[in-house]
Design a protein around this nucleic acid. Structure first.
Lengths: 131, 131
DNA sequence: ATCCTGCTTTACGTTAACGTAAACGTCAAG
DNA sequence: CTTGACGTTTACGTTAACGTAAAGCAGGAT
C-alpha cells in the first residue's frame, strides 16, 4: 500500500465519484447546483466537491424521499448553515424549525395511520386464508 | 327541522361538494378519475359520488402527502378492494403488503432522523441564544 | 323564451425534476 | 498527434399533476 499523506489536507471528490456514490446522475447533481442546493468549488472550469457538499446531498436525497420539493429542501438545508449570529436571526431560525417539525410530525401521523391500516388489512387477508 | 328519510338510502355527493370538502379542485377530482383512482357512478352524464369514492379520495390525498406518485397510489388502493378470492390472489396481496410496509418503514426512518436532527439543531440554537 | 348556475368534454398551457443530445475543452496514454 | 476518458455548457424533450380557457348541454328561476 502506498503511504498516505500525513496531513490529510481535506479530501475532495469529482462529479463522477459523487454521482456514483449517491447513485444519481451527473445531470441531477448539476441540477441541484443550478437550484442553489449545493455549490461545489471550481478549479478552473471543473467542479470539486468537499465533505460539505456530500452532507448536503445526503440531506437533499432524504428530503426527496420524504416528498419535499427541491426548492423547499433548499430553504431547509440553508437553515442548517445559516450564520446563526444575531439574536433576531436565531429567533427566526427557531421559528422555522418549529414549522418544519410540525410538518414532519404531520407526515409521521399519516405514515403511522397508513401502517396501521396495512396491519389490519393484512389480518383480514390472513383470516381469509384460513377460511 | 325537516324530517329525514327514514330509510337513509345511501347518501351521495356532487363533484362540487366533494371538491369543497377535500379542498381540491373539480379538475383534480376528474384527473384522479382519468387515472383510474376513483370511478364515480354516472347518472346520465353527471358524476355521482358515494362513500366508497370518499374513502378512496382520503387515501389518495394521504398518499400524496406522503409523496407517492398517483400511479403508485392507484395500485395501492386497488389492493384494498381487490377481490380477495383465490388463495394465489391472497398470497400475492400479502406479498404486496410486505413491500408497502417496507417502503413506509424506510420513510419513517428517514422522518425520524430528520426530526432528531431538527432537535439537536434547535438545541445548538438555544445554546447560542444564551451565550 | 332567456338567463343563470352547475356540470360536461376537449384541449392546450405550466411547473418540477430531471433526461438526452450536441458540441466543445483537456489532459494523459498510445 | 490523435484517441479516449471525463469534464463543461447550452438547449430542447419528457413525465407528472394538474391549471386554465373554450364551448356546450340541462334544468330551474325570472
Amino acid at each position: 500500500m502506498a503511504s498516505r499523506t500525513v496531513l490529510e489536507r481535506e479530501q475532495t471528490w469529482t462529479i463522477a465519484q459523487i454521482a456514483e456514490e449517491f447513485a444519481i446522475t451527473h445531470r441531477a447533481v448539476r441540477h441541484y447546483e443550478e437550484l442553489g442546493l449545493i455549490s461545489p468549488e471550481r478549479r478552473g472550469t471543473i467542479r470539486v466537491y468537499h465533505r460539505r457538499d456530500r452532507t448536503r446531498l445526503a440531506l437533499i436525497l432524504r428530503g426527496k424521499r420524504l416528498g419535499f420539493p427541491l426548492e423547499e429542501i433548499r430553504t431547509i438545508i440553508d437553515l442548517y448553515d445559516a450564520p446563526r449570529g444575531r439574536r433576531s436571526q436565531l429567533e427566526y431560525v427557531l421559528a422555522q424549525i418549529d414549522e418544519r417539525r410540525a410538518d414532519l410530525e404531520a407526515r409521521r401521523r399519516d405514515l403511522d395511520e397508513a401502517l396501521a391500516e396495512l396491519d389490519t388489512f393484512e389480518a383480514r387477508c390472513r383470516a381469509d386464508l384460513k377460511a
